[in-house]
Computed example of a mutant assay.
Amino acid sequence: MLTAVRSRSRTALAALVTLTALALAGCSASPAEPGARSSPGQAASPAVPSGDAFPVTIPSALGDAVITKRPERVVTWGWSSQDAVLALGVVPVAMPRNTYGGDADGVFPWDADKIKELGGATPVLLSSDSGEVPFEEIVEVRPDVILAPYSGITKEEFAKLSRIAPVVAYPEKPWALPWQDQVEIIGKALGRSAEATALKERTAAYVASLAAANPVLKGRSFLYGAANEADQLNVYRASDPRVALLGDLGMTVSPSVAALDADPKAGSYFYNVSYENVGKIEADVLVMYFGSQKEADRFVADPVISAMPNVRDKRFAPIVGESFVMASSAPTVLSIPWMLDRYVPQLAAAAAKAGA
């Protein structure tokens, strides 16, 4: 999860304000003439019909974004906003570098495929490993809009970013926006609402087709977890997008998810269950993610875990590999087909054992 930005010195803040002024001035410059060399990502955006009217105001939990004209230079922040932007035919001028799950450059495979399809260059990749918003890097690419609806930016970060360009943040809670809402919000910000609606419908139809092709999933209960802390499971609440995606396949959240939740109003998208309580988990299928097969093997080798009925009876459907972890953790119109084509057969096999 993103962390709060550490305080800057007065000198650094003054430099940021100066750079911001330069960036805003640059954004008002005339667009490049046809055939002119453009910055990374910009040239790949295809011509689009008139679409939505501008200006447009997009509210969020942190404040409004007032976008006066169709954005041409788009910056994304967070785990997955770039997916919706690319799916709508626009290559961002900058997006986060993802060393976890990304290729050698830090680009997710489904994003790399889409950039290639659009004929674009790899965008400027923003420093993201520390979790801090790289304000100066964002200033340098002179954005027209900053899209961060699936992120953890704070009120203070929102205010600083808004000095650079309009910022589209999350409507309610950080790290909790369903993929349907994400593509809709980003479509509105880019003046491509009709295209966004079509994308949403096409993706929903794809998920529905997988559900129809795998009826064994219908009604099967599941618990979605992770083993990120010693001797504890991270259990994801029903509102988390990764959990909701399995619900779209016809599965149901195990009652254990609510029963074991000691503080359901905590506001986080997951809670912890100690290994001494994993015997209380009742679910047809246990779904968990691991960065590597080695991690998955180490998890099931623990005597407490190997004794769990789900693991013992092979009703365990692990998501393995960093790219798969990211594709499932922040599902989008691009990552959903990339991941589910490969994962659903494994999930269906585990669900089938629940009825054996």
Rank of each mutant, 00 (worst) to 15 (best):
D103H: 02
L88H: 14
W79Q: 13
D111N: 15
L86V: 03
Q82P: 09
A84G: 04
E117F: 00
D83T: 05
K116W: 04
T99R: 14
L88M: 04
D83C: 02
V90P: 04
F108Q: 14
A87K: 14
S81W: 11
A112V: 04
K116N: 11
V107K: 05
V90T: 14
V107T: 04
W110E: 11
N98Q: 15
V107Y: 08
D83V: 01
G102I: 08
A112K: 11
Q82S: 08
V91Y: 11
G78M: 02
A87T: 00
A112S: 12
T99D: 15
G78T: 00
D113V: 10
Q82C: 04
D83M: 03
A104F: 13
T99Q: 11
S81H: 11
W110S: 08
A84L: 02
W110I: 12
K114E: 15
Y100N: 06
N98R: 14
P92N: 03
D103N: 11
D105W: 06
G89T: 00
A87C: 00
Y100R: 13
T99Y: 13
Y100D: 06
A87G: 02
G101C: 02
K116M: 08
D105R: 14
V91I: 06
V85F: 10
D103E: 04
M95Y: 13
P96M: 00
P96N: 10
V91K: 05
D111I: 09
I115C: 06
D105F: 09
G102H: 04
F108D: 10
I115G: 10
W110T: 09
D103T: 06
F108W: 14
A87D: 04
A87N: 05
G102R: 06
S80F: 04
Y100G: 03
V85L: 11
L88Y: 11
Y100F: 15
I115F: 02
A112G: 08
Y100K: 08
A84S: 14
V90S: 04
V93Y: 04
D105S: 15
A84H: 15
I115H: 07
G78Q: 02
P92Q: 01
G102S: 11
D111S: 15
D113Q: 15
D83F: 05
V85D: 07
D113L: 11
P92S: 06
S81T: 05
G89W: 01
T99L: 15
F108H: 09
G106D: 02
P92E: 01
D113T: 10
A94R: 12
K114T: 14
